[in-house]
């Protein structure tokens, strides 16, 4: 999409977009003494940063695929940004759920059907509900003071922008390097490689995706599945034990405090 901006080099567009993203996050993060004008300026800078990042993206094959990918990626990124700048933690969690739907759309575009659905079911259906439970248990009425300020918003935004700039530079170099990315898929044998002229354009994992993923999971990675099961069990027991020990410690604290007060 760099054809839209013929006079600007891609590196300049990327630097501008990253700087605008940092400024936008700094303006939008919860701060003391913020104004409505700063919020609008932050939104405008965020839109500019998104436009710059879209401009550094490569053209995908077809218009339809490109439109779908752009839509789900923008949903994921915009709601991800809204997750970290929203004051109310409940709204943060809801924005995170929307970001999860965007991420699952990206995974579907990438051809990972099982993971796209699992992200929605496991993350939005289970983990996020757990977060919301804790929020509802622990949320004071109204906005807490610590939700209206941030730790060093400028330095944090700059750190994120530096990381993003370095990562996108590395990604751009990596994928423009034809020696790296003309690599043929490992699954394709030499015979199929000779038959298909463009093996990297088609998804080699598309046929019977879920069945083959299950075969891979319970074949080559069986040990990892067993370890994950043990990890889940340990986390379950650990959580229960931590709750029990914590209750006991709290009781001790209360008894000590009451005894000290009487004396």
């Amino acid at each position: 999409m760099t054809g839209l901006l013929p006079e600007l080099s891609p590196g300049l567009v990327l630097a501008g977009a990253v700087t605008a993203a940092a400024a936008s996050l700094w303006l939008l993060l919860p701060r003391s003494g913020e104004s409505r004008a700063a919020r609008w300026l932050g939104l405008a800078l965020g839109a500019a940063a998104l436009a710059g990042l879209v401009a550094t993206g490569r053209r995908l094959g077809g218009l339809g695929e490109e439109a779908v990918f752009l839509t789900v990626a923008l949903v994921a990124v915009i709601s991800g940004a809204a997750t970290i700048v929203t004051r109310s933690p409940v709204y943060s969690a809801i924005w995170f759920a929307l970001s999860l739907t965007g991420v699952s759309g990206v995974l579907l575009v990438l051809g990972a059907q099982f993971l796209g659905v699992a992200t929605i079911v496991v993350y939005a259906g289970a983990i996020l509900v757990m977060f919301l439970f804790v929020l509802m248990l622990a949320q004071p009425s109204g906005l807490a003071p610590y939700d209206r300020v941030s730790n060093e918003p400028l330095l944090s935004a700059v750190a994120g922008a530096v990381l993003l700039g370095l990562l996108s530079l590395a990604i751009g170099r990596l994928t423009s390097d034809t020696a790296c990315c003309a690599v043929a898929p490992r699954a394709a044998g030499p015979a199929t490689q000779a038959a298909a002229p463009a093996p990297s354009a088609v998804d080699p994992l598309a046929a019977d995706q879920v069945a083959r993923l299950g075969g891979e999971l319970f074949g080559r990675h069986l040990l990892a599945v067993e370890v994950a099961g043990v990890l889940l069990l340990v986390a379950l027991i650990g959580a229960i034990a931590a709750v029990a020990r914590g209750e006991a410690a709290l009781e001790d604290d209360r008894r000590l405090a009451a005894g000290g007060g009487r004396r």
Binding site: G57, R59, L60, T175
Partner: peptide
């Protein structure tokens, strides 16, 4: 590679 680049971005 374009899809890889955009997804990594």
């Amino acid at each position: 590679p374009a899809l890889l680049h955009d997804a990594l971005l």
